[in-house]
Design a protein around this nucleic acid. Structure first.
Lengths: 231, 231
DNA sequence: GTTTATCGATGACAAATATCAATAGTAAGA
DNA sequence: TCTTACTATTGATATTTGTCATCGATAAAC
């Protein structure tokens, strides 16, 4: 089994949320003292939609999928949670319920910090509050552009967007492991799994990507971007 | 012409943003001194997507549509802006660009407040910051549930959602003026205008609503909700 | 090793939705 | 009043997308 880098201290943690830079030593210590660390195995649920938002969650290592369980039982994958990111749905400031579920894809290390402490820091530290606003705003901007993409683009464009998301945001590489199943890739791009398979094949046949069941390689990024834009 | 209630002072304004309650007298005065009031005629653009977010906008009276101009030229209507609401896209905290456009539907009175002053108050007043976070979070929650609705429901369910939005949020009545054209209703529910017409007719034929080109009356709310849920 | 479940892949088909074309109504402007 | 330009409506048709059935491969469970 792999030896995990345990997070010892918020002050020195290399995977910490960028906004922690706005906290004073005392504030960081407060965070640190109210912190619970946990490790999750692939497939395990980290956060369950609808449960109380008693904590803010920070990803220390690994990857997870954040998804909404729709009223009809169908899932909708929102994003891939990555190290250094704050995971805190909008419900925390509305109804104190988790807005979405989060499940580990790889082994995940995460820190839970008591939400009252977190909110208290937001109240007393203006720069920290602004950092949170920036973080939330960025996600919100992403959600909006996603919504437009989903509603105005056809399957080819949506799948291209998905592939580019993994390349640009998740792996920062033109070649990567496809950590989602076809089914899940469909839950992310709003298409049936069979359609995912078909269009991946089309993209491969036309030389835009290489793809096997576990790997994606972007061969012609220009063309893929064009497909994304054309919709 | 109707005589408009001019907003004279943020301290006494009856249409002011609810979060203003957390500001001190001095802070309110600062707001008030850096405020520009403007009146817009139906159809006029209040905010243009992509322009700099130099101001936060508050609706004092009237209704407007907030919409994203998609890359393909198609619009996507996000919401109806109502009196008392803050209009400030996430871009304000990301790239200082307006995330969406806003256009007056009826005559609109609105106040613009310098964004630097606004942000400054967020930084120094924790309760105000928390109020902003709550406001943003509420909108974000709405966007997410909207996205799931759009991607998992069929046309009947989406249109039902749209009709219920007007009934529950905009007019708070089972009977209301349909202030959007069929085309716009389609831009809101992600369907072609012809389909909007057809399904409105179906809903009318089955006794769920009454509808003519300018009015909607919900006759069987239970059934409409069921249609919304069933998707 | 065998069973069982899941995933990827494929073809045929059905359902949902968009587009096109045509017409009539409506409202703003000359 | 007469245009002119939308807007609403309708039917016919095309396109897109989802569902079903099937099969082989793979991997976890017993």
């Amino acid at each position: 089994m792999a030896v995990l880098n345990l997070v010892n201290n918020c002050e020195t943690c290399t995977h910490r949320w960028k906004n922690f830079q706005h906290l004073s030593k005392d504030e960081l210590m407060l965070m640190n003292e109210n912190r619970y660390e946990a490790t999750f195995k692939p497939g395990e649920t980290i956060i369950k939609q609808g449960s109380p938002t008693s904590n803010a969650l920070f990803m220390a290592s690994g990857m997870a999928k954040a998804y909404i369980e729709g009223p009809n039982g169908k899932n909708f994958i929102l994003s891939i949670a990555l190290p250094g990111r704050l995971i805190l749905g909008p419900g925390a400031y509305v109804d104190s319920r988790q807005t979405y579920s989060v499940a580990a894809i790889t082994t995940v290390q995460a820190c839970f910090i008591n939400i009252d402490i977190f909110k208290q820091l937001v109240r007393v530290n203006g720069a920290f509050a602004e950092g949170l606003l920036e973080d939330i705003s960025e996600k919100s901007l992403g959600t909006l552009s996603r919504m437009v993409s989903l509603s105005q683009k056809k399957m080819h464009g949506r799948l291209a967007d998905g592939l580019l998301y993994f390349s640009d945001v998740v792996f920062k590489s033109d070649e990567y492991e496809m950590i989602l199943s076809r089914q899940e890739l469909g839950e992310m791009t709003n298409m049936a799994k069979e359609c995912v398979v078909r269009i991946l094949k089309e993209l491969e046949d036309s030389g835009v990507i290489y793809s096997d069941s576990s790997k994606i390689k972007i061969l012609d990024r220009e063309k893929l971007i064009k497909i994304s834009q054309k919709g």
